[in-house]
Design a protein around this nucleic acid. Sequence first.
DNA 1: CTGAAAGCGCTAACAC
DNA 2: GTGTTAGCGCTTTCAG
Lengths: 348, 348
Amino acid sequence: MKKVTILDIAKELNITFSTVARALNDHPAISAATKKAVRETAERLNYRQNKIASSLRSGRTNVIGVIVPSIRVTFFSSVVAGIEQVMNANGYNILLYQSNETIGQEKRGIETFLQSRVDGIIASISTETTDYSSFHEIIKRKTPLIFFDRAVEQLNVPSVTIDDYKGGFIATEHLIRQGYKRILHISSDREISIFKERLRGYIDALVHYNIPVDEELIIKGDFSLEFGKSVIREARENNLKFDAVFALEDFTAMGVLQQLQQFGIKIPEEVAVIGFANEAFGSLVSPQLSTIDQQTVLMGKEVAKLFLKLKKTEKTEEAAPEKIVLDPLLIVRASSDRSWQTVSSSEQ
Amino acid sequence: MKKVTILDIAKELNITFSTVARALNDHPAISAATKKAVRETAERLNYRQNKIASSLRSGRTNVIGVIVPSIRVTFFSSVVAGIEQVMNANGYNILLYQSNETIGQEKRGIETFLQSRVDGIIASISTETTDYSSFHEIIKRKTPLIFFDRAVEQLNVPSVTIDDYKGGFIATEHLIRQGYKRILHISSDREISIFKERLRGYIDALVHYNIPVDEELIIKGDFSLEFGKSVIREARENNLKFDAVFALEDFTAMGVLQQLQQFGIKIPEEVAVIGFANEAFGSLVSPQLSTIDQQTVLMGKEVAKLFLKLKKTEKTEEAAPEKIVLDPLLIVRASSDRSWQTVSSSEQ
DNA sequence: CTGAAAGCGCTAACAC
DNA sequence: GTGTTAGCGCTTTCAG
């Protein structure tokens, strides 16, 4: 079985291969009869277009590179799922790369994308990245670039993010409205803007509701389930008083939950807990964990749509890059809702 | 900034472009001096190889297509992560496609892969697939194909799977050794071999330990958290007696757990529960859920390694296809371990 | 060690 | 409506 090309089809029908090419691409200037004949013999010979050749000639690959820290993280796999779905429905394919949060792999990934002449790059940068040279390179080569979630402000690139400030605000506001007043916030000591934004939202919500901001109640560290636990242990040792905890992400919140339970503290009667990210386990633990949903799949779809939109208006470029900011969603569950037990046990 | 090719480098150095190509590819018959000069000007001109052109000429793309039902499912994203990691370290890139469990998208994905002239395809087939024509097409075109997890026996293709029979066996055996005798098994009514294998393991374990197999204790349905709950409700209505539950996967097991707790049944004192898949939530719920780990990332890495191995021995093909079967791991947690409370609260 | 030359399979501008 | 022609940028014989 040798490879069959448009030339083989042409010979078979005694027409030129360019007519075949046009017929296959549904060119308007080809008669219906020829198109039919071409399609039939293509089918019969089991012809399959060679996208490589087509790409080389046309300069378009219909492939877009997606680089994320790790596809194992629920957040990223969801977004990638959304991107893939929409891009795919529009004739694009996804070249996937994981940076594993290292700048080295990130650079290598971008390098490969560039060499593969992808029609665009969608990225969420690694936490390690402070040198943006490879991103500058992308821009210089006029390859469309879009960031999601972890965007780089100074690069002036279109992006889709979620409003972390608002997320921090509504999480805190919810706790306040439930009557909690001494709200502990667990944040990160790393220079990551999304966490700083959540913290800012927390503070502003307190200010807005005339609740004093107590520096003692803001604890920073490396987020993890373990860290969540240790925060509660130390708070108890230091006799720190609080009636609610807003953790920067769900695993940390989970640690808080577990440690509080271990101490026999009632949730949410004595202390309320809310996390961030809407991890799958939140609705399965007991009490169910309140959280902030980041609309991951929607984010992926929005990224893809933004890309397609930019493609269309490529000519009129150089306007200010579009930055889409999605609304975070408050998910109230038992861990922060005093009325939960009596009201509902179903969910979304 | 126009695109720079090897011709530009050649002109710059007054040599032919074929010498440049060889230098760039580290051809042995090129002097160190020329290589150095070429590399320097390549760098200076900001040259970047065009993989498309290279692929067209050489017939190799260094891209492999990976098709999975959905990247949102932890199992698949983990395996893909493993595949990507190893393939990447070996100079391959991953073209990703989701079938969404439909045969239509699966076919379209494979079609695209073939058109893109991928160097190989790694697949886990959709549950809907009963017509294997597109897979036959892959084989006919001599594109290397490897299955993982959901393999198709009759296709006689290399694969990496996990020993589901053994998984079912050790899960059941564990319960038996803990002293449970009336073990309910929740299985699927779909024709999916992995679930049938788990069931077979369950039965054989009972037989092996001289425990009667009671058909009443084998319940089939569409797996989900809800289904797990309903099984327990119906069992109670029918006054079915059992002291342990082995569910075909973790979400169903979780439903079982929740419903048992709602009925005030003590776990694991009165009824033990074990699931399958080692979903992330298992160690976070209370009581923690015992389960069977499927070594997902390892599976991905093994798939990639198998692919690389097949590439190397391509000449000596046509032997029986290699089928790697990974061992499932028993993860004992509180939901099935009567000694748990006193022994440990840490995990893996 | 380097050059010359052919072509991978297709697209697209230009003819007629 | 269809044919002619010229490449896209590279790899890879075959020479020398």
